[in-house]
Amino acid sequence: MALETLESPSETTKSEAATVVRTVRRRVRRRHLLVLVAIGALWLGLFAARVLLGDFTVTIPDFFRILFGADIPVATFEVMESKLPRAVMATLAGLAFGASGAVFQSMLRNPLASPDVIGVTMGSSAAAVVAMTVFGMDGLPLALVAILGGLAVACAVLFLSGSKGAATYRMILVGIGLAAALQSVIQWVFTTTDVYKAQDAMVWLTGSLNSVTWSEILRVTVTVAILLPVVAAMSPRLQMLELGDDAAQGLGVRATQTRALLMGAVVLMIAITTSVVGPISFVALLAGPIARRLNGGRPSIPIAALVGACIVVAADYVGAYLFGASNLPVGVVTGIAGAPFLLWLLIASRRTIKDG
């Protein structure tokens, strides 16, 4: 009897602790689901506005009639050749860039980390610019060259960072250095190539959805549909990497291999998307911190992907209609919005370091 009396408080404490853990987990899942639904609803509203509103308004019944094959003069052309392709491509590009930014920021444990900062996007861009201006490539060959350029930079960053420094500021510094060198290559190409080719490449470099085709949309759709679920499925391992390589190893996660697999999948997704729409700036940098704050400080690749989609769709609408007759490329709008956000992140990071 005495033993039972001594053991019962311990059992009660364990039961209470288990109940608290289950309650917290339910709250976390509930918040994650609510945020996901809310961001999904916001994206749907922005998508509808991009397709239906603007300088030529289309009613919802007419949109569905056009979608199912009806030929309505002017409206059919506006929807199928301009509004809908841009909205779909903006969504796909936002999903790809938003998810990739969240992966890099979690993997490197730094809110300033993104494919833009690490130099992966610049690797794809430099390779694509050389292919466009020097060799006259486009379509699938251009996409393959962009993939090779992004993968080459990613491998160089991993190799030059060292096995113990891959998750520290060293990786970011190496990426910044490589990005600066590649930017110089692009500038050199612009000064030596034909002025018309350089102009086309410059428009592409700003990030634009103006001339996307359904074949390009199909290519990016297949890429995102395959790689985004793969990256999302590896999210639990990614959260363990945030604890540090030693802790991740102790939990049974091979840090180096996991980081290489994640980077390979993300770089492939970024490179194929960049080969179509160009390097749309700051989307990858913006989406991750916004998603983390909405999710109560926890990383979420699906939420970051949807946030990225919202950013690009909204930026495309703003660039197309809110600056008068000037049709600004989507990359210009995201750059204008992203620069103040980057400064805020830098100030916040500095404050955190001082407080620590």
Results as ranks from 00 to 15, higher is better:
Val37Asp: 10
Ile347Glu: 01
Ala87His: 12
Gly139Lys: 02
Ala87Arg: 06
Ser215Cys: 08
Val174Glu: 03
Phe97Thr: 03
Gly288Trp: 12
Arg26Gly: 14
Tyr169Arg: 14
Asp62Leu: 07
Leu142Gln: 00
Pro9Arg: 03
Ala304Tyr: 01
Ala320Phe: 02
Ile303Met: 03
Ala314Lys: 04
Ala143Phe: 00
Thr206His: 01
Leu205Pro: 08
Asn327Trp: 14
Asp116Gln: 02
Ile226Glu: 11
Gly356Met: 15
Leu92Asp: 00
Met80Gly: 07
Val37Lys: 13
Ser163His: 14
Val195Ser: 14
Ser326Asn: 15
Glu11Gly: 02
Val224Tyr: 06
Ala315Tyr: 11
Leu173His: 08
Met132Asn: 10
Gly54Lys: 05
Thr213Gly: 10
Ala198Thr: 01
Ser125Cys: 04
Pro299Trp: 01
Met202Gly: 08
Ala260Trp: 11
Ala287Arg: 05
Leu182Ser: 06
Ala41Gly: 10
Ser211Asn: 15
Pro289Phe: 09
Leu148Arg: 09
Arg26Ile: 03
Leu53Phe: 03
Thr273Phe: 11
Arg65Gly: 05
Ser281Pro: 04
Ala225Tyr: 10
Phe323Arg: 01
Leu322Ser: 11
Asp62His: 05
Leu108Gln: 10
Gly175Thr: 05
Gly356Tyr: 11
Gln249Val: 00
Gly331Leu: 04
Phe77Pro: 01
Ser326Met: 15
